[in-house]
Design a protein around this nucleic acid. Structure first.
Lengths: 165, 165
DNA sequence: CACTTGTTTCACAAAGTTGTGAAGCATGAA
DNA sequence: TTCATGCTTCACAACTTTGTGAAACAAGTG
């Protein structure tokens, strides 16, 4: 099959893909992600492992190069996508790496640990031996639990999947 | 210049608590939560199990009753807080229930399942037997795995904690 | 019933975000 | 070097979001 940019493909398929991209982007937006980064990310989800160039993204999503620039920077900062360039190629390719999700979810523990630290300060502030302190400490412990367990969960999936292939 | 709102507590402790509330709210904001809901939620985190009234929230956070109204509605919609009124009391109390976190995190599977469904449409759109389709399907399967495992993880914590008390 | 107290709704002003065109910058080719 | 191409930055305009005061509404109380 052709690895040509989108203009030569089956238009019906293209349409279905486009609808998926917008739908998935909307879900991500509802979950708190900014619009353009969500659209770019969704587009890269349905791209091949080569990813897409900035120009291709701009055409597919009907946005300016400036918008693409901002969106990819945002995504890269959050480690959601990667940038690369193949030898002899003059354009950057943006793509979602094979291990990206595992990395992203597996490293969610960083956020949780930050919350834990803050919660611990809170426990000190209200006093550890008060009712309120104990309540807060329970929340802290729960997040601590998640921070430890999440990476293990991802690891379990990885093995479960490698066994399948 | 603030004439600092006066409650009957130790002012130094109050100050530390206030700082925690703002700090935690900021973390939640960075994680995608709207500002006022995040502040209200954080305030309720350090409240006793009685929670706080709208007036207390307004005074503590220095915001209008209207802002409180909007923020608590938002939080209740997401099942982050509860509302209750004690017999003989004329004001509503807002509070974070004892099982709130377990519910919130444990039901994150709903979001994941929604993503799964969308991803499956995507797989159909690009074709299940293509390179791109297989990549997408892998993502879908990963989320499906999370949707199944998360509630079990929470259940595990619950038992782990009940054993301790 | 009227009165008091507490909550929600509404319209608007302030503040913040977003996406754009245009200009500037970097990199490779000839 | 100069040219061509692609990426990023910048200032601005359009659009959203946010929080407020004021008024409407609800629910107890005497």
């Amino acid at each position: 099959m052709s690895s040509r940019p989108q203009s030569q493909r089956d238009p019906a398929e293209d349409d279905a893909v486009l609808r998926f991209v917008e739908k998935f982007a909307l879900l991500l937006t509802n979950a708190g992600m900014a619009r353009m980064p969500a659209r770019v990310f969704s587009a890269l989800l349905v791209a091949g492992s080569d990813g897409m160039t900035a120009a291709e993204l701009a055409e597919m999503l009907q946005i300016s190069p400036a918008a693409v620039s901002g969106a990819v920077r945002y995504n890269m900062q959050l480690n959601m996508i990667e940038r690369g360039r193949r030898p002899g190629e003059r354009r950057d390719h943006y793509f979602i790496g094979d291990e990206q999700w595992y990395y992203t979810v597996g490293h969610r523990d960083v956020l949780f640990r930050t919350l834990c630290d803050a919660l611990d300060e809170g426990v000190q502030a209200v006093g550890p031996n008060t009712d309120r302190g104990r309540r807060l400490a329970e929340t802290r412990d729960f997040f601590n639990f998640l921070a430890k367990e999440l990476p293990m969960l991802v690891e379990r999936w990885r093995q479960h999947w490698e066994a399948k292939s």
